[in-house]
Amino acid sequence: MKKTFLYFIAAFLCINAPIYAQENTKKQKVQIISENFLAENKIPGMAISISINNKLFFSEGFGYSNLKTKEKVKPNLTKFRIASISKTLTAVALAKLVDDKKIDFDASLYTYLPNYPKKNMILP
């Protein structure tokens, strides 16, 4: 029984070894690019998480979240100040929605938010 199980595991690993090797190579590339980016731009710390087909492929912290205490970045715990980058992300998201024809800037707001309160307009 143990031999059969070991043969099964060995066969599974041999069949799937190229897949695991390819994933590890991709993860190593992400690590190298991230570490170089951190060093070149003199960034104290950053976190990167990559999802492929709704499955977490890579998640790692680089550098420090606190330089004084040398606390390392933890992708699931470290909070970053995003400052004005949210404006850019919002613009990109809206551009994608326009490209996908899911939103039309010329349409009324009420097309997308029908229950939004209407103002009483006093016209002259």
Rank of each mutant, 00 (worst) to 15 (best):
S49A: 12
I9T: 07
Y20R: 10
K27L: 07
I15D: 02
A47C: 05
I9C: 03
P18D: 07
I50V: 11
S59F: 03
L13C: 04
I33M: 09
Q22T: 14
I19K: 12
G63P: 00
F57R: 04
A10N: 02
Y64C: 05
F37V: 07
N54K: 09
S65M: 14
K26C: 09
G61D: 03
G61V: 08
Q31M: 14
E40T: 13
A21T: 13
V30P: 00
G63H: 04
P18W: 11
L13T: 02
K70C: 01
I48W: 06
A21M: 14
M46F: 09
I50C: 01
C14D: 02
E35V: 07
N16F: 15
L6W: 04
Y7C: 08
F57Y: 09
K29A: 15
F8L: 07
I15C: 06
Y20E: 07
E71R: 09
E71C: 05
S49H: 04
A11L: 04
M46V: 04
K42P: 00
N24I: 13
K55L: 08
T25G: 07
A21Y: 13
I9L: 06
S34F: 05
K26I: 15
F62M: 07
Q22E: 11
A39M: 11
P44N: 15
K55V: 13
V30E: 03
K68G: 01
E71W: 09
I19E: 08
A17C: 09
L67I: 08
A21N: 09
Q28Y: 08
Y20V: 13
A39G: 02
I52D: 07
N53I: 01
S51C: 12
P44R: 15
K27M: 13
K55N: 11
M46H: 05
I9R: 00
N66S: 09
K27P: 06
Y64A: 03
T69K: 03
V30N: 01
F62P: 01
S51I: 15
F62D: 03
L13W: 01
F8M: 05
Y7D: 13
N66L: 02
L6S: 13
E23R: 14
F58H: 03
N36L: 10
N54I: 05
K42T: 06
I33G: 04
V30F: 03
S49N: 10
L38F: 07
A39S: 12
I33R: 07
K55T: 10
N36K: 14
P18M: 10
I32F: 12
S65A: 14
L13A: 01
S51D: 15
A10Q: 02
N24V: 10
I9M: 03
L38K: 11
E35C: 05
C14A: 11
N16K: 14
P44Q: 14
K68M: 02
N66G: 00
G63W: 02
I32G: 06
I50L: 06
K68N: 05
E35T: 13
F5E: 14
P44T: 11
N41A: 11
Q28W: 06
S59R: 08
T25C: 05
N53D: 09
L56A: 06
A47M: 04
F8I: 02
F58S: 01
G61H: 06
S51P: 07
F58M: 02
